[in-house]
Amino acid sequence: MSEDILKHEEEKLEELLKINYLTPNNSVFRKTEGGFSALTFNGTDYGHVNLIRAFPFSAPDEFISVRKIDGKNEEIGIIEKLNIFDKDTVELINKQLEIRYFMPEIIKIISIKEEYGHAYWTVLTNKGTCNFTSAAGSSGAVIQLDKRVIIKDSSENRYEIKDISLLSQKELKKLELYL
């Protein structure tokens, strides 16, 4: 009896220690009624699954961890490269990732007003004009990754500047102090 348990646990451990790569051969994604992705992997239907980018900044389309939606959100497997799947699947997955990593994209910085250690931003985004407040001076409110800049407001909502070099001189000047 005890041997069985040990053997079982060891098998489980081995299972845990290896990466399951999800490929078009072993996985099928479909859309749930709620518009989420559902996964059938190696014949097992996992239903609605959670999708998480392992490298949200440096490799958004690679190493996407697919996890169970309930319990402890165990990982089912990893999509190494999203583009090995067909167009519809990619679209479905991207749609869900887009919601998870929701960030309005800043097109234009209209004004940044600083008062009492806090910056009050007004920006034009792809989702319209947004007003928000961030803690000025504290590190972490503005993350810079090469050309991309991500700004977190005081509620931890995020806004993204895709390419800082596309900003005008005037806008850069406003932003510069926060980088």
Binding site: P56, I99, R100, F102, S155
Partner: peptide
Amino acid sequence: VDLLVVGGIFRVNVESKEKVLCTFTNS
């Protein structure tokens, strides 16, 4: 409520069919 990186999704099953009612920001 599925908590996302920013905000979350509120979903509920209506007559056993999954339905997303709304998403929301952290606010």
